[in-house]
Write a protein that binds this DNA or RNA. Structure first.
Lengths: 185, 185
DNA sequence: GAATCCCTATATTGGTCTGATATATCAAGC
DNA sequence: GCTTGATATATCAGACCAATATAGGGATTC
């Protein structure tokens, strides 16, 4: 699914500028499931305007550079409807933290603990964010996606807290589990 | 973290060819946390050999094209140890399925159900895979990473099963929850 | 016995996308 | 008054993926 289609999707939720579309992928609803940068969004919007799947109106603002507000056309709406019928790519979880965890024994004692602490802190922030977003979700689809994000972050936090000893060589405790705790709930 | 560093990491676990490194990202230990393709692995290995962070020996095989087996040098080992001390990028979850879920109401009735079914099936396969990998893990780090994968997939499956009605317009049931089930365990 | 298909193995390329950077204005804080 | 941060658009080098090419081996099918 290319950036073109992603833009059509965001515009389906309402008119927006390139800047606002970017924010949806950086902080908003889609930040937990997909991403796109300026370098791909702006060319995509130009191409979409050229193909008349969106229209662009300039909104002048006092002083500031003009806003280019994009709206879907009927063709754009149809194109998007078609696009989401295509086969979907598999989900991907990318984590440098997990990669480094494999090599925990190469790191200084405290470094790995610091990484785990940071990881948990980040996840807690994310869990909170998605939890707040559920209340503000306009549609069932949005609630579904935010809810998914929330439970994933919470599951991750729980695992990290229960299994961090596996990658931390705690010199104090002599007897430790060597297999992960896999809470089946 | 670039492909260069990822290759050093894989080679840290033992000598390997470019093909084998690829497999580690496609099916192996790292498939659930990072990725790299031939188009980036081969150039990276050439560059690493040039910089003497790895050495390459040709292993002739009857008939087949020669294998190029790469091994870490001491410099390579040191370089990798340094690399994993740098700041880590945040985790990313990429999911076209979640993106499309937001637009569930644009899809034909059965299509969304089909997508959810497929999603659950895939997740079950992944959960099983990681579960099996735990037994075969050589180090605590590997068990930690595979264990993480397993509980994440299981959490996802549970959520999908409990909340799929949010994005499926089930014409039969009249009364439905409209907020996600968030099992706190 | 030969035809087809998949696996191993290396390598290249087109096109896409990220990350960094440039430009410009305004509001808020200090 | 000066710095920082947000809004807003835009470009570009470099990194990377997906697809494709090549080539022999073994397995399966007909």
């Amino acid at each position: 699914m290319d950036v073109r289609t992603l833009c059509l999707g965001v515009l389906h939720l309402g008119d927006a500028t390139g800047y606002e579309i970017r924010k949806m992928f950086e902080e908003g609803l889609f930040s937990h499931c997909l991403e796109a940068s300026f370098g791909s969004i702006y060319p995509a919007l130009s191409k979409l305007a050229e193909d008349e799947l969106v229209i662009c109106r300039d909104e002048r603002q006092s002083g500031r550079p003009d806003k280019k507000v994009y709206s879907l056309t009927e063709e754009g709406r149809a194109d998007f409807k078609q696009a989401i019928l295509q086969d979907l790519a598999e989900d991907k979880y990318r984590s440098e933290f997990l990669f480094v965890s494999v090599f925990a024994d190469l790191l200084p004692q405290r470094r790995m603990s610091e990484l785990v602490d940071r990881q948990i802190a980040r996840m807690k922030l994310m869990a909170e964010e998605t939890a707040n977003s559920i209340a503000e979700s306009d549609t069932a689809g949005m609630r579904f996606v935010n809810g998914f994000g929330q439970i994933m972050y919470e599951a991750a936090i729980k695992y990290l807290q229960e299994n961090r000893h596996l990658i931390e060589k705690d010199a104090d405790r002599k007897v430790q589990r060597t297999t992960p705790v896999l809470s089946h709930t």
